[in-house]
Design a protein around this nucleic acid. Structure first.
Length: 431
RNA sequence: GGAGAGGUGGCAGAGUGGUCGAAUGCAACGGUUUGCUAAACCGUCGUACGGUUAAUAAACUGUACCGAGGGUUCGAAUCCCUCCCUCUCCGCCA
């Protein structure tokens, strides 16, 4: 969400953002509603003033039948006008949720991730003198992954991790958590069931509603599907971590706030039927260590933090001895709320390509406005904060890269040094 | 799942139909006093959306907001209805 005043003053830029990001929104119509809304509000306010005057007179004085009659008339007019105003305002507020953040100047314009721009490639890709196996085969042979049973039990895109697969999964997550703790992040295990406001606040709603699971007590669902209430399973800890600060006014001296959440993440992936249907790459539930930073509304400071977060992810991947590249996401790939987004794509030999494993975003005040997170600045004013978020590690997707990059010709997998203490082995040997 | 209690300003906590945006206390901020700190005293002390002047700092002004929405009334924090949420006890359960 953007400040309506900003939208009015920067119509062109907002319209361009809508176009570049491919958002379905008629800005002209929204602005018309805004004008209408303000006019109606003024009229309503005037009538209310009249009503209050009459009430005041009646209170302080004697009974006056004429005044009471007058009050009844005003009330009638007011009821009608308020109805009208409410309709306009509701529609206006609904549409305002669709207004995107303005992309940064260096964000490439484009419709899909094909327009993303590679900034740098880091690490050395393994040079196999044999035909590398994919993680599915490796996982099966090492008895650390069972997709058939996963699908049997969970359905499409289900999986079981087993044995060292479990240790690798938990190990890489634990490694990330420890690293974030050492970098000064406050650690949290947040709820993964969240109310609607947190999804709207972060920007998942109303854009990406199909990707979010609603959790409804099974009995309720059967009784009355329409009225069933539920909570939402988060697609990332970011939702809960920002919800934590919703409606709060923070103290400037506590900023920046750096938190790191570890949670299970749920995404229906209904929009991606034919993409990555095999293996651990695109799955409906996974675990993620996610960082959220809340800082002052200072563009430069946010940019700096954005780079620092990227640095942390790069450091993680270097520790894990994985080759990767950094891309800057284009307008069509970055999401409505984002000002600037870096993705890190890690080398996955079986795809013979890079796969996205990390994402680092600067949303400026877009989420803060929706979530109503402010801080009291030194001059005593309340301002909206800026928010950023970044992936420390998401697993099991990262296991795709770990397994495939570290395999040998016999199908054994070398465990990256930093994970050995969790897995308890240097090499996973084929049975 | 059963029963009950409750949601008021940063916090605590009054207020049961009429200038109530809301007493009081605490916290915060500014100041006076003081060798410093503390104490004491004085003052300030919500947010949002409009309007006017004026220009981007501000001044004045209107309206709204006491969980949300609706209703009764000339007038609602206060009465009525619906919903949401929180808490307590019991039951069930990892």
């Amino acid at each position: 969400m953007l400040d309506i005043k900003f939208i009015r003053d920067n119509k062109k830029a907002v319209d361009k953002a809508i176009l570049d990001k491919g958002i379905k929104l008629n800005l002209e119509y929204l602005l018309e509603l805004d004008t209408k809304r303000r006019t109606l509000k003024q009229e309503v306010d005037e009538l209310r003033q009249k009503r209050n005057d009459i009430a005041g007179k009646l209170k302080s004085g004697e009974k006056d039948e004429k005044l009471i009659e007058n009050g009844r008339e005003v009330k009638k007019l007011l009821t009608e006008l308020e109805e009208k105003f409410k309709n306009v305002r509701d529609e206006y507020e609904r549409l305002l949720l669709y207004v995107p953040q303005i992309p940064s100047d260096d964000t490439p314009v484009g419709k899909s991730d094909k327009a993303n721009k590679v900034l740098e490639e880091i690490g050395t890709k393994p040079n196999f003198d044999f035909n590398p196996r994919d993680h599915i085969e490796l996982g099966k042979d090492l008895n650390i992954l069972d997709l058939e049973r996963g699908v049997k039990v969970s359905g499409f895109r289900g999986y079981f991790l087993k044995n060292e697969g479990v240790m690798l999964h938990l190990g890489v997550l634990m490694y990330a958590v420890e690293k974030m703790r050492d970098k000064g992040f406050e650690l949290m295990v947040p709820p993964t069931l969240t109310k609607d406001f947190a999804l709207y606040g972060t920007g998942w709603f109303p854009f990406d509603m199909d990707n979010i699971y609603k959790a409804i007590p099974a009995g309720k669902l059967r009784l009355d599907e329409e009225k069933s209430e539920g909570t939402n399973l988060v697609g990332t800890a970011e939702v809960s971590l920002l919800g934590y600060y919703a409606d709060e006014i923070l103290d400037e001296k506590d900023l920046p706030i750096k938190v790191c959440g570890f949670s299970q993440c749920y995404r229906s992936e209904v929009g991606s039927y034919r993409k990555d249907t095999k293996g651990l790459y695109r799955i409906r539930e996974f675990a993620k260590v996610e960082q959220v930073v809340i800082c002052r509304d200072d563009d430069g400071e946010a940019d700096k933090i954005h780079e620092e977060l990227l640095g942390l992810s790069k450091e993680m991947l270097n520790d894990l001895e994985l080759p990767f590249r950094v891309v800057i996401a284009c307008t069509g790939d970055m999401g409505a709320g984002k000002h600037k987004m870096y993705d890190i794509e890690t080398w996955m030999p079986a795809r013979n390509g890079y796969g996205e494993t990390h994402s680092d975003s600067n949303l400026r005040d877009w989420q803060a406005r929706r979530m109503n997170i402010k801080y009291k600045s030194k001059d005593g004013k309340n301002r909206y904060v800026y928010t950023l978020n970044n992936t420390a590690i998401a697993s099991p997707r990262i296991l795709v890269a770990i397994l495939e990059n570290n395999q040998d010709k016999d199908g054994n997998v070398h465990v990256p040094k930093v994970l050995q203490k969790y897995v308890g082995k240097e090499v996973l040997k084929k049975a």
